[in-house]
Simulated scan of single mutants.
Amino acid sequence: MSKKTVHEILEDEDFKALSSQKNVISIILTILELVLYFGFIALIAFNKPFLSQKLSGEGATTIGIPIAVGTILGSWVFTGIYIFWANSKYDAEVKKVKDNIIGG
Rank of each mutant, 00 (worst) to 15 (best):
M1Y: 06
S2W: 00
K3S: 04
T5K: 03
V6D: 03
V6T: 13
V6R: 10
H7G: 13
H7A: 15
H7W: 06
H7I: 12
E8K: 12
E8Y: 09
L10Q: 15
E11F: 13
D12I: 05
E13K: 14
E13H: 05
E13T: 11
E13W: 03
D14A: 15
F15M: 12
F15W: 01
F15E: 02
F15T: 05
K16H: 12
A17N: 07
A17H: 03
L18S: 03
L18T: 06
L18N: 01
S19I: 01
S19F: 06
Q21R: 14
N23H: 11
N23V: 04
V24F: 14
I25G: 01
I25R: 02
S26P: 03
I28S: 08
I28V: 14
I28H: 02
I28T: 10
I28K: 03
L29T: 10
T30C: 15
T30A: 13
T30I: 06
I31G: 07
I31W: 05
E33H: 09
E33M: 07
E33N: 10
E33D: 09
V35A: 14
V35P: 12
V35K: 07
L36P: 01
L36H: 03
L36K: 02
L36E: 06
Y37Q: 04
F38K: 02
G39V: 02
F40S: 11
A42N: 07
L43K: 02
I44C: 08
I44E: 01
I44M: 04
I44G: 00
F46L: 08
F46C: 00
F46Q: 00
F46Y: 15
N47T: 02
N47E: 05
N47A: 14
N47M: 10
K48P: 00
K48M: 02
K48S: 05
P49G: 06
P49W: 05
P49Y: 01
F50D: 04
L51P: 02
S52M: 12
Q53L: 08
Q53M: 11
S56Q: 12
S56T: 12
E58W: 06
G59P: 00
G59Q: 07
G59S: 10
A60D: 08
A60W: 10
A60P: 10
T61E: 01
T62D: 05
T62V: 12
G64S: 05
G64H: 03
I65Q: 15
I67C: 04
A68G: 07
A68M: 07
V69P: 00
T71C: 14
I72S: 07
I72W: 13
L73Q: 07
L73A: 12
L73P: 01
S75Y: 08
S75K: 12
W76H: 01
W76Q: 06
F78E: 03
F78G: 04
F78P: 04
T79I: 08
T79W: 11
G80H: 03
I81N: 04
I83V: 15
I83L: 10
W85Y: 13
W85G: 00
N87P: 04
N87M: 09
N87K: 07
S88F: 12
K89R: 09
K89I: 13
Y90K: 10
Y90F: 14
D91T: 14
D91F: 04
D91R: 12
V94M: 13
V94Q: 08
V94I: 14
K95R: 14
K96H: 06
K96M: 09
K98G: 02
K98Q: 10
K98D: 03
D99P: 00
N100Y: 03
I102G: 08
G103N: 09
G103W: 00
G104C: 09
G104K: 04
G104T: 07
